[in-house]
Design a protein around this nucleic acid. Sequence first.
DNA 1: CCATGAATTTCGTCC
DNA 2: GGACGAAGTTCATGG
Lengths: 210, 210
Amino acid sequence: MDYVGRLTAHLPLATRLLMVKADGSISIHADDRAYKPLNWMSPPCRLEEAPGVWRVVNKAGEELRITLEEILHDTSHELGVDPGLRKDGVEAHLQELLAATPSALGVGFTLVRREHMTAIGPVDLLCRDATGAHVAVEVKRRGDIDGVEQLTRYLELLGRDPLIAPITGVFAAQEIKPQARVLATDRGIRCVVVDYDALRGIVRDELTLF
Amino acid sequence: MDYVGRLTAHLPLATRLLMVKADGSISIHADDRAYKPLNWMSPPCRLEEAPGVWRVVNKAGEELRITLEEILHDTSHELGVDPGLRKDGVEAHLQELLAATPSALGVGFTLVRREHMTAIGPVDLLCRDATGAHVAVEVKRRGDIDGVEQLTRYLELLGRDPLIAPITGVFAAQEIKPQARVLATDRGIRCVVVDYDALRGIVRDELTLF
DNA sequence: CCATGAATTTCGTCC
DNA sequence: GGACGAAGTTCATGG
């Protein structure tokens, strides 16, 4: 294999695995390392197959030239569209930890319900503050403007519910973007930056006590 | 697929490609993107195969659990040890540029030969200085102690060759580490920091002149 | 389409 | 083994 592009690279003759995907991309693998191929061409690119030689080029003029000495095995499958990866890890776990430690959101806070349902979707956490008033909490890994808007919609809806009102909002995230903080503060929403690892430690300690 | 580790992630049921390598590492691929798998476990890790369920764990306690609904194709091959990728881009090109512009190594320098063969390997560049004396040049992208040692060995050998002696050395690199510079200077080897882009410009200009 | 920042970054090197 | 920086970084988001 020879690659001429952002750098020049060469792979000597050896037994390897070639993977050609539906988007035309190609990767060359040795028998180690899961993450990174020895060499590759990212889509969009074009594969020209000639006998014994594959040539892969992209729009930028980068080129991968693969010389095939011997084919030990060749198989092809239709995989169809992939549903894709769901990384719900941090946000879901964060919500879980905060539900277990509502005091991390404010002094005297208690949990009413997780995933409190409204007409426009579930509020992450519904709490009560030290005075007994309701608090809607939106939990995010990265606190962005979108999250503030979302919480604002919940607050507007819940504020009209006589069983809930009066209600205030807390925007809780591992990291809160400056723009989101400004918008939240302007709307009377309090921002709480959550230390994931510390919180996990607190929850673990509390469990250990019993 | 479910991953619990530095984060938590989930892949719904779909047709995918699983790649298991000799080092025990595993990767899950969809039919697009050459570079990055949907999910993976890097070595060192351990794969426990049970009927319909693969469990991959590493030392840190991260876990990949793969549920197999149906196997459409299953194949295995011995690939053997891989010679590995040679990224000869920068160093080879640097040698080429310096061969075309030996004056960048010293006033009055002329090229005798590239890759001058010796019993212990090829010297990158063999030149003559303004007085006509030989100069051995070692070219590196990053000038390290190893490079100085290498050049020293060549100088020792070539200095004993009556057809070559007397000989001096030049250590040329885009960047020279302080320790390497000290060692080189101590051994009477001159260090030259090469500006790759500037040199390329000079060579291009010279070509344009003719 | 370009700039910026995160990433289960990975990967190499220095200390 | 940990810290630091580069990578054909790749990848998503914001403007």
